[in-house]
Design a protein around this nucleic acid. Sequence first.
RNA 1: GCGGGUGUGGCGGAAUCGGCAGACGCGCUGGAUUUAGGUUCCAGUGGGGCAACCCGUACAGGUUCAAGUCCUGUCACCCGCACCA
Length: 921
Amino acid sequence: MADQQTPHRYDARFACEIELRWQDAWQRSGAMRVPNPGDQGFDASKPKFYVLDMFPYPSGAGLHVGHPEGYTATDILSRYKVMRGFQVLHPMGWDAFGLPAEQYAITTGVHPEVTTTKAIDNFRRQLQRFGFMYDWSREFATIDPDYYRWTQWIWLLAYGSWFDPAVQAARPIAELESRLTAEDRMIETSPGVQTPWSACTRRQRQAHLDSFRLAYLGTQTVNWCPKLGTVLANEEIIDGRSERGGHPVVRMPLRQWMFRITAYADRLLADLATVDWPDSTRTMQTEWIGRSEGAEIRFVVEGEQEPLTVFTTRPDTIFGATYMVIAPEHPLVQRAIERGARGELHEYTARARNRSDVERQESKEKTGVATGLFAVHPATGARIPIWTADYVLIGYGTGAIMAVPAHDERDFEFAKAFTLPIVQVVEIEGTPWTGETATTGEGTSVNSSSSASGLQLNGMRTSEAKKAVIAWLEARGAGTLRVQYRLRDWLFSRQRYWGEPFPVVFDSDGNHFPVAVDALPVRLPPLADYNPIESNTPQPPLAKAREWVITTAGAAGVDPSLLHPDTPVTRETNTMPGWAGSCWYYLRFCSPKCESAFVDPEAERYWMGTNGVDLYVGGSEHAVLHLLYARFWHKLLYDLGHVSSREPMARLFHQGLITSYAYQRADRSLVPVDEVDDRGDGTFTERATGGLVVQIVAKMSKSLRNVVNPDDVIAEFGADTFRLYEMYMGPLEASKPWNTRDIAGVFRFLQRVWRLAIDERDGSLLLARAANADVERQLARTIHKVGQDIERLAFNTAIASLIELVNAATRPTEMKDPADGGLTREQLERFVRVLAPFAPHLSEELWQRLGESRAACVWRSGRRSMRRCSKIRWSNCPCRSRGRFVRGSPFPRVPMQAKWNASRSPTARCRRCSVGKPRAK
RNA sequence: GCGGGUGUGGCGGAAUCGGCAGACGCGCUGGAUUUAGGUUCCAGUGGGGCAACCCGUACAGGUUCAAGUCCUGUCACCCGCACCA
């Protein structure tokens, strides 16, 4: 607190006062507005820089200290880039559809829009208090009808498109239709029946086209989460439980809207090489897509028309296939039951179906039942039994495998459990075959020949044998090369209320029809009761809005040429998942008010350019889900000519998690932070008992009472200190513990800055009469370093060098005349510029007191000559005598890179070293 | 189990290219200023030793004139995936 002697001290009250004043001034002057091409103030000569934060889900709990971490980083970079002459787009908005608001509505009956709007207002207030340079005129939320209108529009675009394998890109489905008409192609109208296009009924044609749409209605085994009352995408499930809430998930077949993301698997994979993203994230996406090359092999099944098709990555081990396994859900199981298999089979498949994924995860013990069917080995002609077991998944490959127990651990375990034959067919160097375990990996084929079929693999390397088998299979029509992905199509329907409605209706026969683009948005109807409808088949809450659901084609906005306006129709009652709005928001920020398109093409070309967003900052928890989905939508838009870059985000950066300290008793139970005393010697005690507790690092959580509220911190130190503290904690990408005690350090730094320039007694400027040469050199070096550090997002070291500079320039107490120390007016002006991106309010205040205006605040790098360390260029001494450094030896920099040779040997050099001279700073 | 990452003082961390380990901050110690506390300023602060010096970047080896940094192995923690054929 400022006392009588120092009324002009930089304390929390004063910091808050100038912060609010400047925030208001920036807001009123429109300093944060960013013009678009064609707008007033737009300067086409300036390069653009688009920096984006992952927009938040505005929860009722308000801002968390984790939010401002990334936002401060991007704000510093934005302010720096503006000073460097860039036109910077740095927007903010709200990812506002989602489960928490809906679940709150279920318990309280308050409409999600009410709670969400309130939460948004609170988030905006909190963010504005940090002085972030967001262009608030571009703000929007995904729940705004003006926004979700275009989310629905993009969905219709996918609905009206197909993936043309010839060009590996999305094309309008009308092109496919005209091609079918022109070529009068034969299409499959029912299993095994081919009909020429011209002879097909309208229904048949429609069904055929529907099977190609990128957004399509598919019956799939879905992940139903009873607790959440909705289905979930594969990506939203971790260890058989919902990512959100950790509730159990069961599998059931359901007709749902899907996205054909698998069509883009290869491009999503290949283009990862073109972006500047963290390796960890690219690896995770690569693994999620899970491309594997192998063969599809068709086995003849005794007494069946249809062959059994399997997928294997090791076709070379075909001679080691001693049995087959099909998933319990495989159609052939049903055939086996029909053909009179034992009751055991029926029992097993029924049990496997009901077994939740959680249970499946828990026990990996192999179970299974023989189906009684036999397949014929294509090379040897041997009869091999077909089993069913739940270790084979219906969702991957063909849901069937040829089991090669000798060279696959899972098959080996199963063969041991059911005493099935095991035949070694690969010899692996360094891993001798013992028959005790499976040997996996590549090697040389053995026991792999059959004179009858002419397939000879013995002696071949694995890669060679694979090719030979595939060629042999293809020649006989018994199989082919195949690429398989782990990635599945994206389940896009949710049985929720608080999401974007699908712009689609159904007639009484269940045919679907799109809502015309000019009838968008399809608005979410209000509802009194948000509870999910209890039912065996999942029923979305929207079904309760009966007047909305039951309507006519005309009222719903279906094109009259598709359906007569009086036709009774029902609306789709599923809604889109939370990811929908975040898939394209970065595009809307380019022209948030555009009414004629989802994005204004000129604005899109300017801000997105050919590489997309220049820097995207957000948590690594979105490494797969959001970032994969957004890339998919972007590629779809790219194919259809709506965006100009192949990838949405050129550079990606994940800020680390801000954790907190927690305290543990000897029995590992946790003690709330506010019940612990620091004894100051690195040990901690529990206040109530006096017992020793151990400090650990944990996520902030209510139960540990270690959650830090940004509002409280700002009230105590000001926003500039908060910003500086979070940036000074450590590397941006690292996870680091919040330590309230450390904030004082950066607060004191800002006080020193203030005291350096301002007399605390009367508020007047304190300026040095003449520049000190050492301080001047350090200032030049600091400006250079801070610029470099900002570019590489190393804010912690940038701040450290600012502190060093201020420490060097600080006047000692005993100095009588303040003009003998500190910085000159000109030096102070340069210093304020480098400080400004980090502590914008304090800097602006000093800048104004120096009589300058913000517009003139450009970044000026120091003169190179002034950055040199000192007049005598001392350098690192490579000289060692008996393995020891000899200090203080002068040594030119260049030869360090040069090769060492005898004449330059350290001993020779050290003879010339002048030991004992001081090292220059 | 597989893949990726991280291990540096009492604490957060620095060392960008293989070149004086511990910048900067917290905490702690001492001093000056102050009636006092606080504030501010100055100095010290990896461990051992009176010292010169010795030891020190998870552990064990290796490469190199030189290793926190590169290589091999081990351990611990974190993240992702997990019966994906």
